[in-house]
Amino acid sequence: MDHSQHAGLPAGAASDQSLYHLEASWQNQQAQTVSLAAAQGKVQLVATVYASCENACPRIIADMKAIEDKLAASSGAQLQLTLVSIDPEVDTPARLQALADKIQLSPRWQLLTGDPDDVLTLAALLGVQYKKISETDYAHSNIISVLNPAGEIVHQQQGLGVDPAQTVAAVQAALSAS
């Protein structure tokens, strides 16, 4: 990725490669309307899940929690953890709130649902593929994306149960560069 072209941008401004150009609004677990760009200036970790997932999703959330734990003490205030539902027609804010309560997520987390087309678009931006395989289940890529304060993907952790060291380092690098 070529970052030289926007070297002169102020820290945290959305660059040409920024996902924050996506015009989409989401609902969080408290049914508030939010945009991904609200995390501009922070480092945002994004993964896609669906609330009724019993197989990989709890593990991807656990992986994200592990990253959060390693960073909370040093840079917790500059960290945003975001889960986006790929099943927005089923995953209402109330369902997402129930999930957040059940797995005891910290206030750094937001669980988002939105328009199915916007979910497709965000998935395309993140390089996530997903497919409904039954009434209740989806197959999907297990990818945790690290967005720097400008909204660019600077790192992606792929697969489950991966050693989070690289991702933690990527978050720290993104924070110190800003």
Partner: peptide, 23 residues
């Protein structure tokens, strides 16, 4: 288009793998 998944090395970051794809 991104809701398609086919077995095979179609993309280096999405090779078909149970750890990458839930179910």
């Amino acid at each position: 288009f991104n809701t398609v998944m086919v077995t095979g090395e179609s993309r280096e970051d999405s090779s078909f793998d149970r750890n990458l794809f839930c179910a």
